[in-house]
Structure formats: C-alpha cells, structure tokens
C-alpha cells in the first residue's frame, strides 16, 4: 500500500488505513536513528524546504533531522530571515520557492489554512507543520505512534486532552486521529477555552480536571499560552495552575499505568508539575524521538515510497 496523496494538510481526511500505514512505516524507520551511521540514501537528490513563519525549535529541527537521515537536501527558511519582512505575500513567496524546484515544502504559519493555500497553488508536496489553531498532523501522528508503542492499539483507550482546546491545533489533529482509531477521547479545560459544538467532533467534554482524567489511560496536557490569547480570557497562570495542572495528587485518579504526554514546550508549574513531567508516567521525550520517525515516514511516503 502507498500513500496516494500529494500533501499532508491534516488528519481530518486521513483514513484509518492511512494512519496505520504511516505509523507502521515510522516504526520501521525508528531503527535508523539508533545506528552508528544515521543515514540512508532513500531521498538522495530530493530537496526539502522548511518554511516557518512561526518560531519553532523542536518541530523544525525534527523535520530537518528526518530529511537529513533520508539524505535529502534541506533548506530552512524562517520568517525573520525571509522576504516576509519586506512585505511579500505568502503566495509570492510560495511561487518563488516553486521556481527553484524543491520536492517537498513543509510550512508552519500562524494563520489557519496557510498550508491549504500552498497546496492549491503548487505542484510540490506540502506538509502542514502547524497552521494557526487548525491542524498539526505530524504532532498527532507522533502522539499516536507513542500510544500505540506503549499500549499496542488505541481502540478503547480513554484519552484525556486537557488545556486550551480552543487555541490548540494539537488538540484538533489528535481528536481527529484518536477518534478515527477508536479511542474514547475526553477534552477538558475552562469553559472559555472549549470551542463551541466540539462535542460534534465525537468527544466528551469536561470542565473539571478530576472528571476528565478519572480512569484515563492517557493524559495529554497542552501548553498554556496566555500571551497568545485574546484579552480577558483567563485571570492568571496561577489560577490556571491551581485548577488545571496535572500534579501528584490528581494523577492518582487516572489508571495506575497512565501515560502522561505533552507536545512541548512544557510550562513547568503551569499545566504540569515538574515531578510529573519528569516522573515514571511521562513519555514526553519518547514523543520527541517518535517525531523524527514519523516525519521520516511522511517524507518517504509522500515521495512515492511504499511500505
């Protein structure tokens, strides 16, 4: 089976089979990163551009390492050094890049739908590395890979996603992915951070942390970013931490072998206490490791590779 699509814009339109294919492929690529010589010639001669309009260390580095381990040539463009500051439009930037014949363009942008603009405009494969609060498909895929590794499957697992759901692309992509894979997804946060009608996406909604994480197999904490939210959304980080952080008391409500996940970067002491982030349940750094494997798999599959 191969992934017969040009782009990876979001989890919303992926089938269960496609998700399995990507995760299987990622699993087989994981081993490469543990070799002494961490490089295979699979994408030699291919050019991969990362086009980041938002600051990112982890995701951009992860994509770059993934591409390099497959021997692709990588070029990184970040908004601060690109022509964006000169007032060039996204469409003009994209057309200029296209003229240099890359094979894959990976875009992160603060505006929802930015990857869709490139997808409709360019011949190249487009990978969405996060567009506004819309989708972040590779994050959801690496999260699913991590859960699958630890639990064998996602079917029937109770998974709580806690935090600012309204502003979270990670939450949306995970909701699409995890519900497709048969998990029982609970979302939780203060009501002003729960977007309207989200129950129609097949999740149960909680406004109290304790209700959401009770008997959970997985608790996924989201990064709280008050500075990125509109005015008057929430009183203070202190208030947030008092009611919506994962800590040594409330984690006991979850299953004994609960997995604690976080897409990073962590606000220690806000949404998660240090002893939980660093504790035995945490798989946060394994998520990062799996990020490279999932991105290798996607670069490979979108380049026409077969499992």
């Amino acid at each position: 089976m191969d992934l017969s699509r040009k782009d990876m814009l979001g989890i919303i339109d992926l089938s269960r089979e496609e998700i399995d294919l990507i995760l299987d492929t990622a699993e087989s690529f994981k081993e490469i990163s543990t070799r002494k010589i961490k490089k295979v010639p699979t994408l030699r001669g291919k050019t991969v551009i990362t086009l980041f309009f938002e600051a990112s260390t982890r995701t951009r580095t992860s994509f770059e390492i993934a591409a390099k381990r497959l021997s692709a040539d990588t070029i990184n463009i970040s908004a601060s050094t690109s022509s964006v500051v000169k007032g060039e439009t996204l469409i003009d930037t994209a057309k200029n890049l296209e003229s240099m014949n890359p094979d894959i363009i990976i875009i992160r942008h603060s505006a929802a739908g930015a990857a869709h603009i490139l997808s409709g405009l360019l011949e190249q494969s487009i990978i969405n590395a996060g567009d506004g609060a819309h989708e972040h498909p590779t994050q959801a895929l690496l999260d699913m890979l991590t859960i699958r590794e630890k639990r064998g499957a996602m079917e029937g697992l109770k998974i709580a996603i806690v935090g600012d759901i309204a502003h979270s692309r990670v939450a949306r992509s995970n909701i699409y992915g995890l519900t497709k894979m048969g998990a029982d997804v609970a979302i939780c946060g203060p009501a002003m951070m729960i977007p309207r009608d989200i129950d129609q996406m097949g999740v149960s909604v909680y406004y109290k942390m304790e209700d959401a994480i009770r008997n959970a197999d997985v608790v996924m904490m989201l990064r709280m970013q008050l500075e990125r939210q509109e005015r008057n959304l929430f009183p203070s980080l202190r208030e947030y931490a008092n009611h919506f952080s994962l800590n040594r008391d409330n984690i006991n409500l979850a299953k004994d072998d609960v997995l604690v996940m976080h897409p990073g970067p962590i606000n220690r002491g806000v949404e998660i206490t240090p002893e939980i982030a660093d504790g035995p349940h945490s798989v946060i750094l394994e998520q990062v490791t799996n990020g490279v494997a999932v991105r290798m798999a996607l670069l490979y599959l979108l380049s026409g590779g077969r499992k």
Binding site: A112, A133, H134, R196, I198, Q200
Partner: peptide, 13 residues
C-alpha cells in the same frame, strides 16, 4: 460564524 465549522477549522468565531 461560531459553531462546529469554526471549531473544526480553528478559526475564531
């Protein structure tokens, strides 16, 4: 418009 579509698209409603 605020509703299920804005929630899916991640656009403020």
């Amino acid at each position: 418009n605020e509703g299920i579509i804005s929630t899916q698209l991640g656009l403020p409603g």
